[in-house]
């Protein structure tokens, strides 16, 4: 708890005082100029995280359902679960390098190199193990009798999963997904060389895009006061967003249990 509060208080002092409407809605200033904001980075973080979620949630929930409901408990499912745990431990920068070589360096999307899409895909690789694991473990908690009840009234396996088992495991799955999003939204390393950065508003999914974490990384080491302050302000906003996501996850797990 102490490190959490130290970080929060420090970021609050350094960044909180800079919060204003202008900060949230304007572009960052050119080096040497004053004022400006981090609006493009906030929007970019949302866009990139959204792309990551759109990939990681269907694939991850599907993977969890496969492991829990379809796979025989043999070597293959053990191997997949082990692989998933290993993937969860892969350093995020490795995910970045992987997507860099797979998508950025090959210019696979419309001959574009760095892009929001590449950033989103890199983050989805990070989210995937969390989503798979929470889905799998959430489904294991659903009592077998519940499935039997559905089969007993003539439900097929597909109907049982989509209408009974998955809704019954909604809480742990939703909690895991939100925590996965929160983790992905704060990542810097995989974005530096996939989404890169842009001082402008997002120009579509296949161009470089600004994100808060990369903005912090870039601006904190610049020799300009205005940029340093924006980095602090962005830190504050990012921490609040991630804190909010974590609180949302807690709220989901409480609200739906009652």
């Amino acid at each position: 708890m102490i490190p959490l509060f130290l970080v929060l208080i420090y970021v609050l002092i350094q960044g909180g005082r800079l919060i204003s409407l202008q900060l949230l809605t304007e572009l960052p200033p050119a080096p040497g100029l004053e004022g400006g904001g981090i609006g493009n980075a906030i929007l970019g973080t949302i866009v990139v995280t959204l792309i990551a979620s759109l990939i990681a949630i269907p694939v991850g929930v599907g993977g969890g359902v496969y492991l829990s409901e379809y796979a025989q408990d043999g070597w293959f499912s053990k191997f997949v679960r082990f692989g998933n745990d290993v993937l969860a431990g892969v350093p995020s920068i490795i995910c970045g390098v992987f997507i860099y070589s797979l998508i950025v360096a090959t210019r696979i999307f419309f001959d574009q190199s760095f892009s929001a899409m590449a950033g989103g895909i890199a983050l989805s690789v990070l989210m995937l193990p969390t989503v798979i694991k929470t889905t799998y473990e959430g489904l294991l908690l659903v009592p077998q009798e519940m499935r039997m009840g559905a089969y007993g009234v003539g439900a097929s396996r597909f109907v049982t999963i989509t209408q009974i088992t998955l809704p019954a495991a909604f809480t742990p799955i939703a909690t895991g997904v939100v925590l996965g999003i929160a983790r992905a939204a704060g990542e810097t390393a995989p974005l530096i060389f996939t989404a890169l950065f842009s001082p402008f508003w997002p120009e579509g999914l296949f161009n470089p895009i600004a994100t808060m974490s990369v903005l912090i990384f870039n601006f904190a080491i610049m020799p300009y006061e205005a940029q340093n302050e924006l980095a602090w302000a962005a830190s504050f906003v990012l921490v609040i967003m991630i804190l909010g996501a974590n609180l949302l996850a807690r709220w989901i797990s409480h609200a739906t249990r009652a």
Binding site: E145, G152, G154, I164, P167
Partner: peptide, 20 residues
């Protein structure tokens, strides 16, 4: 087997209503 279970229903040992 799905068709079989539609025509032959089942009630289980432990009450197992759906979470609905």
């Amino acid at each position: 087997p799905v068709e079989v279970r539609r025509r032959i229903g089942m009630v289980f040992q432990k009450p197992n209503p759906f979470p609905k």
